[in-house]
């Protein structure tokens, strides 16, 4: 009996380990390849060198795209954070007869293939004369695909907050604005932060939206990596990917340090 439990656990442990290896090994290989001293993108690397990082950080196209990607991700995070939170508040607390329609509408960018959203936006931009001459369309596209992630997280947080908590504050003399600032926002903060983190990550390595909506003559980091791979096959792309992984990881760590991902629940 005991033996069976133990061997069952062992099997489960092995299965989990295999899944992790399957998921993480490619990343490990890319990171290792970025430190290759040789010419090609290969694994195992022929010796250790930072030359591809130097190549990456001194390449104007890569730096331009990194800057644009970061700017877009930050703007998309803040904007979708505000819009997604507002939409979640409306959906959970105030939406009436059309609440399910409203939910589908907000989640549409997540439910539809992203490339369809991108095509739809592209047509729309040309219809209204915005086009893709500027990066405005790119920003809007990223905001649109990030909103559902914030919306879902904040909605979940709001469901854990009984309306009576807010009503109690009203009964004690707090106007709705004060209730939001002092009661609602602090209590849904973990949801808002998780949602914003998702938004940042989604935006930072988005391809399909950027593919169609990037302004003429500008490009984001994932697009730049893709373009670069079409012409050459040197480890600069591995370095770019590693930097990109570190940025995402950095965002997670930073948020954890600033506010704590596991803000105390009750």
């Amino acid at each position: 009996m005991n033996d069976r439990v133990t061997s069952g656990r062992l099997a489960l442990g092995c299965a989990i380990a295999l899944v992790y290896i399957f998921l993480l090994l490619p990343i490990v290989i890319v990171v290792a390849a970025s430190f290759n001293a040789g010419q090609g993108l290969k694994f195992p690397p022929d010796g250790f060198s930072l030359r591809w990082y130097v190549a990456f950080f001194t390449s104007e196209p890569f730096m331009d795209s990194l800057r644009l990607s970061l700017a877009v991700a930050v703007v998309a995070t803040v904007a979708s954070g505000v819009i997604g939170t507002t939409a979640a508040l409306y959906y959970v607390r105030h939406a009436g007869r059309w609440r399910e329609v409203f939910r589908i509408y907000v989640l549409a960018p997540l439910l539809l293939p992203e490339i369809l959203t991108a095509i739809a936006l592209l047509f729309f931009y040309y219809q209204i004369g915005l086009g893709t001459r500027t990066v405005v369309g790119l920003y809007i596209g990223h905001i649109v695909v990030c909103i559902p992630f914030v919306f879902l997280q904040v909605t979940a947080a709001l469901y854990n907050l009984p309306p009576s908590t807010e009503e109690a504050a009203r009964s004690l003399g707090a106007a709705p604005g004060v209730v939001f600032r002092r009661i609602t926002l602090p209590l849904i903060k973990p949801g808002v932060i998780n949602g914003a983190l998702f938004a940042f990550i989604i935006s930072f390595d988005n391809v399909s939206i950027s593919l169609l909506l990037k302004g003429i003559g500008t490009t984001t980091l994932p697009m730049q990596v893709f373009d670069y791979l079409r012409w050459g096959f040197d480890p600069t792309t591995a370095a770019a990917s590693t930097v990109s992984i570190l940025m995402t990881l950095g965002a997670v760590v930073l948020v954890d340090r600033l506010v704590g991902l596991r803000t105390v629940r009750f």
Binding site: P162, S164, E167, A168, A175
Partner: peptide
């Protein structure tokens, strides 16, 4: 009048204390 202007005290079934 909205609730905050009525000068009432209310106790809820789930107490509705502010958990934070």
């Amino acid at each position: 009048l909205p609730p905050e202007k009525r000068d009432i005290g209310m106790v809820f079934q789930n107490y509705a204390l502010f958990p934070h």
